[in-house]
Nucleic acid binder design. Structure first.
Lengths: 315, 315
DNA sequence: CTGAAAGCGCTAACAT
DNA sequence: ATGTTAGCGCTTTCAG
């Protein structure tokens, strides 16, 4: 197999010189350079990046930890990461956890083994304390508030967003407001914030007004079957995603029920089609910024703005 | 920095023995094993995967080439790849091309440099002939028909699918049938097949009945503005994606126009919500199978079935 | 401008 | 059961 030694031999020079032309280093005569280039072409040679990475000590590879693929929330962040990474010549590896802490931990270990230079957590299953312990092996960026822990983060002020939404609903006179979340409040910071904001604004406990484990449109239908049970009469439902909201919409339509006021999340195309209000967390920009932090290695915490896209339901 | 030598030194044994316990090889006494394990823990040591990959000659890393992220077509394939790859301990790297042949080629080169063990092309920008030339550096799997070229592939019989759709429309008496595609027929095999099927079934040229460069819901709206121009009166539109179909739906709704019969693609949640017929190409399974082929290295061409999900428009 | 040689950290023959 | 040693393919001092 062709390696740098072979190239050196065939072009009558040392591996050092070959390495120099490979890396565009100066101090090599034009003549030798051409000869080497010719041999490289003839041999169809390409430097082994593993050997190169080994000696250089960096992989130019960053990992994005996601619970699962096929979820617009993560996809949007990923797309931001990829775009920026591409510009800087970094490769990005997708790391699915299925929300399992042990699997997530195995990715932290890959930082240690140098397979990955940095990690971006779009969601986390380990505690911040645990995550912090791994930061010495490479930068780990969280896409949520990392509190007092020394973990770089880039996120939006979700508390402010949820509070603003609930306040405006309250002001508009909505009494019966439902909520959907995905992971329970013990596991998910955003669920916790969501619930706290609700209880603070409305002054009542969330229990009875919430449906958990919602992520897909099917989950939205299931949530709807709860919200529309006899006598409940929910007037508005603040969902944790446009697909969940769409599921509720679909259920109401199929059962010829009055559509409640729906609030989605993520500003996906479907919220435009069905014309419901949604909050855009600018996830792509968050992904892009997370990448910047990941490579710079700086200990920064950035807060991004969110936008509430107000839409009037049709008919 | 901690390396295997250091571990060997501190546990009074050779690097070989350490390597043995690291790789769970037999022939090492329980006592030494425990001592080594203790030193590893104490040193917080983890083997360098770059060194390991170098000596082993494989990266357990496979790349998925995509034009861009944020497109459900590719996302579904990716999710299938990731799922299978995870089970087998492979890492998946996303490689965006933005449909540029040169960028795509640079990924082929990474096969040569051993950064990637195999490549899965969800879409291609280089010719099959060109791609075939790179297969000697690692397996390259195409997610479309690779004809007589020696390139493994896993795809669906699109011609059959399109023909079936157009035939059924014709049989049902639809006269004015529109079509949307994304990349032009010169660049995209599936666009070409789509058009050929149309012209064969209806016996008329596609020109005037087609809108190109459609990918998003916004593109769908633009397509609609063409299909609904005065006097055109398209009765059915076969789109190249559920989002495009949704854009047409939205346009018609916003302009209080009669909804044409819409046929989507991909069977996304939105097609269920809006209740239009769609063809499911089982992309996730395709991704999963593509991964299997990628690691096995076998020269196989698999054809997967598609499903037409028939739905009746509401009202 | 050029090259010899010393690693990078690991695995695997090949002894012992 | 354990250790010696020769690489894997490359970059980079350092000397000339």
């Amino acid at each position: 197999m062709a390696n740098i030694k072979e190239v050196a031999r065939l072009s009558n020079c040392s591996v050092t010189t070959v390495s120099r032309v490979l890396n565009n280093h100066p101090h090599v005569s034009e003549e030798k350079k051409q000869r080497i280039l010719a041999v490289i072409k003839q041999l169809d040679y390409a430097p082994n990046s593993q050997a190169r990475d080994l000696v250089l000590g960096a992989s130019k590879n960053i990992g994005v930890v996601i619970p699962n693929v096929n979820h617009s929330y993560f996809e949007k962040i990923i797309s931001g990461v990829i775009e920026s990474a591409f510009e800087k010549g970094y490769a990005v590896t997708l790391l699915p956890t299925n929300y399992e802490a042990e699997i997530e931990k195995s990715y932290f270990e890959q930082l240690k083994t140098k397979r990955l230079d940095a990690l971006i957590l779009t969601s986390k299953s380990n505690s911040l304390a645990e995550i912090e312990r791994y930061t010495k092996y490479g930068s780990i960026i969280c896409c949520e508030d990392t509190q007092h822990y020394k973990i770089p983060s880039v996120c939006v002020n979700r508390r402010k967003a949820y509070t603003e939404i609930f306040e405006s609903l309250k002001t508009a006179g909505y009494k019966r407001v439902g909520v959907t979340i995905n992971r329970s409040e013990e596991l998910s910071a955003s669920s916790k914030i969501n619930i706290e904001s609700y209880e603070q604004v409305f002054g009542i406990p969330i229990e009875g007004n919430i449906v958990r484990n919602c992520s897909t449109m099917e989950d939205g239908k299931r949530a709807a079957s709860y919200f529309f049970e006899d006598g409940k009469e929910f007037e508005a439902i603040v969902t944790n995603g446009d697909y969940v909201a769409s599921g509720i919409y679909k259920y109401a339509k199929d059962h010829h029920l009055k559509q409640p006021l729906l609030i989605g999340q993520e500003n996906l195309a479907i919220s435009d089609v069905l014309s419901f209000t949604t909050v855009d967390f600018h996830l792509k920009e968050i992904g892009s910024e997370a990448f910047q932090l990941a490579v710079s290695g700086e200990m920064a915490k950035k807060v991004f703005p969110y936008s509430i896209i107000k839409r009037l339901a049709e008919e």
